[in-house]
Design a binder for these strands. Structure first.
Ligand SMILES: [Mn+2]
Ligand SMILES: [Mn+2]
Ligand SMILES: [Zn+2]
Ligand SMILES: [Zn+2]
Lengths: 136, 136
DNA sequence: ACCTAGTTTAGATTTAGTCTAAATACAGAC
DNA sequence: GTCTGTATTTAGACTAAATCTAAACTAGGT
């Protein structure tokens, strides 16, 4: 029983607008990690009115700020967005560019590895490699 | 007994120019992880002739391609460069923005954690937190 | 229904990075 | 040491990601 976009925004204290709802809903549905332009392209047609590029950026920034989504950095110059806010990491298939979520539990605990000098608040692991589709 | 910039570029098969030498030398000296603009600002004065932004970008891209330096992604929209090519990761102090190298050996091995389906070629870990300067 | 603070908008602006094509300089051959 | 071909550098135009502006529009509370 998962939250709707409307419920999530309400819980997180983000004011509701049709633009925010459709953008949040799109990010919750997809397992991609789209860029702002990809969000704009995917979502524009679902709205009766025009959707401005500025609104997409405003919304994505507001959602990041509110903790509804996360930014994902896997390549220079393009910020990607992710509605999966569970603690997880990413595998980037270097052939297709596909980005796959890796639950934190799949990895050994590395948070404590740095010692007293470093108070780690969060960390991200990004793997780059070949996705073996033929694997059993 | 460490390599000079000239020796390193020669070994890596990068043609020598005064611009490439001074940029490589700067990156080898600093423990910062500068952006292209920071490289330009730091290096321009060390050359007798003008240094073009295009040359800085051309050089940084050539050095990455040749394996002399690495790109480091810690924040949206700005690519940073790192002449430390040993396997290592990064800690970002969220107060100062300072980026500190973390040797791979400090972390448990996570390369094998993903299993057969994922052939990991490389990975990067980025920690975000507070650097405790008062630590013993 | 009214009000108002917050949001959306088109377009201008900023910033990081790439491209162009002419001028220059490295490095190997002589 | 000179010649010469190719790679590199350059200034400036260009592209693309993201932000800013200030006017128009909503959402949602009264
Ligand atoms: Mn999922
Ligand atoms: Mn070092
Ligand atoms: Zn993800
Ligand atoms: Zn580093």
């Amino acid at each position: 029983m998962s939250l709707t976009a409307k419920e999530l925004l309400t819980i997180k204290g983000v004011k509701l607008t049709s633009q925010r709802l459709v953008i949040t809903d799109y990010l919750m549905q997809t397992h991609d990690h789209p860029t702002a332009d990809e969000v704009l392209a995917a979502v524009a047609e679902k709205l009766p009115m025009a959707l401005s590029r500025a609104t997409v950026y405003n919304t994505l920034n507001a959602l990041v700020e509110a903790g509804v989504i996360r930014e994902v950095l896997t390549e220079p110059g393009r910020t990607r967005y992710d509605a999966n806010t569970s603690e997880h990491h990413h595998f980037v298939d270097i052939n297709s560019g596909k980005i796959i979520d890796i639950p934190q539990e799949m990895l050994p605990n590395i948070e404590k590895a740095l010692g007293e000098k470093y108070k780690v608040r969060s960390y991200t692991v990004t793997f780059y490699g070949d996705l073996n589709d033929e694997s059993p």
